[in-house]
Computed example of a mutant assay.
Amino acid sequence: MIQVMIIEDDPMVRDINTKFLQRVDGFLLIKAASNLTQAKSFIKKHKVDLILLDIYLPKENGIDFLKWIRAEEIRVEVILITADKTIERIQEAFRYGARDYLIKPFTLERFKESLFKFKDRYSQFNKISEIEQTELDKYILSNNDLEEANNGTTDLTKGLNRYTYDMIWQQIKLIREKGEKYITAEELGETLGIARVTCRKYLEYMNKEGKVEMLIEYGKIGRPQHKYKINSVT
C-alpha cells in the first residue's frame, strides 16, 4: 500500500480529500495534518510515500514545506492541492519536485487520474533497478507535461484524453490482478466516477487496439450487455 499524508488546515476540505483517497485502491491514509509543524514531526518518524499538500495554511506556506523536504533529502513525493492558480506558483512547485498540481475545486476523476499515474510509476520503479529510455519516456512524458494535463491534449484519436485513457486502463489491470474477468462500462464508471458513455467510448477504442476483448451477452429483456476484459495476449 502507498502510504499517504494529507496536509490541509480546513477540516471540511481535509475530510473531502480523505474520502476521495479512500475511493482509490492501493492508497492508505496514515496521517491527516492541519499544519506544517505536525507534518514535520510525523514525517521525521514515519515512512510516507506521498503527500497531498495544500499551499495556503495559517501563517505557513506549503511551498516552504516542499523546499524543506528537498533540503532534508526526504524521499517522498508531493502532489499540490490548492486554489492558487498563478503560473509563478505552479512553476515554483514543479521546480521543487511536485509530482502534480491540482487546482481547487477539482473533480474526483482528475484526482484519480493523478493518483493512478503516480501509482503506476511508483509500482514499476519499485520492481526494477534499471530502465531503458523508451520505457522511461512513458513516465516522463505523461507525468510531467503540465500543458497536456491542463488542456487535455492527447496523441489518441480525436475526443479521447490520455489521462482518462490511462486511468481506465489502470483500473482494468487492477481488476485482472484481483482475479476478476469482465467489467461493464457501467461498473467501471461507478468505480472511477466517470460517465458510463465516456467509459464505453474508451473501452471500444481499447477493443479496436486489441488491448481488451469484448463479450456481448443477450438477455431476455432489454438491450444486450457489453462486457470487457484484458486481451489474453496483452
Rank of each mutant, 00 (worst) to 15 (best):
I128A: 12
I168A: 05
Y182W: 13
M167G: 01
R95K: 03
D155Q: 12
K104Y: 08
Y165D: 02
N161S: 14
K85Q: 13
T191A: 03
I81H: 04
R89P: 07
I87N: 11
A185R: 08
K138N: 11
S142N: 13
K173D: 10
E113Y: 05
R95H: 10
K119S: 04
F106E: 09
L136N: 13
K181Q: 12
F116C: 06
V78A: 10
A93Q: 07
G193H: 00
I140D: 03
K158V: 07
T82R: 03
R75M: 05
Y163G: 03
S123F: 09
T164W: 00
L136I: 11
Y139A: 07
L115Y: 01
T134P: 02
G193F: 02
S114A: 11
I168H: 05
R75P: 02
L160P: 02
I90A: 04
G159I: 10
E92K: 04
E113L: 10
K158N: 04
N144V: 13
Q91G: 06
I81R: 02
E148R: 15
P105V: 05
T154L: 01
Q133E: 14
Q91M: 10
R95A: 12
I140V: 15
S123Q: 11
Y163Q: 05
E130P: 04
P105R: 07
K117H: 07
A149S: 15
I175D: 01
G152N: 12
E180F: 08
E130M: 10
G179V: 01
Y163C: 05
V76L: 03
Q124N: 11
N143A: 08
Q133A: 15
W169Y: 15
Y182L: 12
K85R: 12
R110V: 08
L136S: 15
F111A: 02
K181G: 12
Q124H: 12
N161P: 01
L115V: 02
G193Q: 00
